[in-house]
Each structure stands twice: as C-alpha cells, then as structure tokens.
Amino acid sequence: MMMTWADFWALIGTLGGKADEAGCRRLAAELSNRPVLDIRGFAERLAEALYRLDQEKFGALPVADLALRDGEPFPQSADSFLYSRCAVVAAGQSVWESVFFDLDQFASYTASTCDGESLLYVPDQAYELATGKEWDRSTRYCFETFSNRDGWPHLQA
C-alpha cells in the first residue's frame, strides 16, 4: 500500500521546516529504518507534492532577494524553482497547502537563501542506507520544472 499523505507529512515534519543537510540526513536515516516499500512511498509522495507545485504562477515569480543590474526582478531558473518547491514542501503541510491560495506565501520561498535541494536526495539516501545499494528510481510523477503540463498552459502544443 502507498504511503499515506499523513505519514508523508509526519516524516516531513521531522525537518523542522527547513531542508538543510543535517535535517535531510536525519530524515533519510529515519526513513531507512522503515520497509523499502515506505521509502518508495515517500519518494512517490515527494514527487507528487513537487509536481503539484510545478505551475507557472509560482515559476514566474522573481527571486525574492535578487534583482538584475537595471533593477528589474531576477527570474527563477528551472533549478532554483525546483529548489524553491522543495523548500515549500520541507516547510510542511500547512505551508504547502496555503501557497495554492496565497501566492505571496510561495514568494517568500524563492529567496536565494531558501534552498531545499537536499530534500530531493532523501529517498535515494534512505534506500542506500537500508539496502546498501544505489537506487535507480523512477516515480509516477516527474518533479522537474515544466513537467506539469496543466500548470504551464502556454507551453501546451
């Protein structure tokens, strides 16, 4: 059976709101003590949570604390947008849910100091800790930027 959203968010809660390296190592260690099926389930839920945030309304936001030389807003790159989405997920269920209704909530996670990249590696680290093997994984949802075609209507052919 797939990991429940409640279990996923409870595990995310161990991060204390941030996807820093120490918190992500701690989460990977905790996850590695569970059955491999739970590690896969966590990976699936993480991919889906990130996929659902893959929307133009979030990706078009500028980086909160940077500007171009001419003072214009500094756009998010595809990678920085992915890391911002990770930071939103790491902040927990209430933040993740709130950004869909309040764009300003998401905007604060675009700051250059708000990097959630480490969260991406938690399932792989947990799997390797649990099995001693590298994980060549795929998930139902692709979390890469622009994967959610419904979230980027102008990109649809």
Rank of each mutant, 00 (worst) to 15 (best):
P75I: 01
D65S: 09
Y83K: 04
L68E: 15
Q93A: 11
V99G: 03
D70K: 07
S77Y: 07
L61V: 07
A91W: 05
L66D: 02
F74R: 12
Q76S: 04
S94Q: 14
F101M: 09
R69Q: 11
Y83D: 12
D104Q: 15
R69G: 08
P73K: 08
A90T: 07
A90S: 06
F100C: 09
D65V: 03
D70H: 10
S84K: 00
G59H: 08
E56Y: 05
Y83P: 01
K57R: 15
L66S: 06
S84M: 02
V63M: 10
P73C: 06
A67E: 15
S80Y: 06
A60P: 00
G71M: 10
R69I: 02
P73E: 07
W96F: 10
S98C: 07
E56S: 11
D102R: 15
V63K: 10
A64Q: 14
A78R: 14
S84C: 12
S94M: 12
Q76G: 07
F81C: 02
A91G: 13
S94K: 14
Q76V: 03
R85A: 14
L61R: 00
E56P: 00
V99F: 08
Q93V: 08
L82P: 01
L66F: 11
R85H: 05
E97D: 14
W96L: 07
A67T: 14
G71Q: 13
F81V: 03
V88H: 01
D65G: 11
W96I: 10
D70L: 04
A90I: 05
L103G: 05
L82Y: 06
E56T: 04
L61Q: 05
A90V: 09
Q76A: 02
D65Y: 05
S84N: 04
A64V: 01
V88C: 08
F100L: 12
D102Y: 13
V99M: 09
A90C: 07
D70Y: 08
V95F: 11
L68G: 03
L66N: 01
C86T: 01
Y83T: 08
G59D: 06
V63C: 13
P75T: 03
Q76F: 06
L61A: 06
Q76W: 08
V99Q: 06
A91M: 11
V89R: 00
D65A: 03
A87K: 00
S77K: 05
D79I: 00
L103P: 01
R85Q: 07
A87E: 09
C86A: 12
G71H: 09
F101Q: 15
A64T: 04
P62G: 08
A60E: 13
S84T: 02
L82E: 13
E97P: 01
L82I: 01
V88W: 02
S94C: 03
F100M: 10
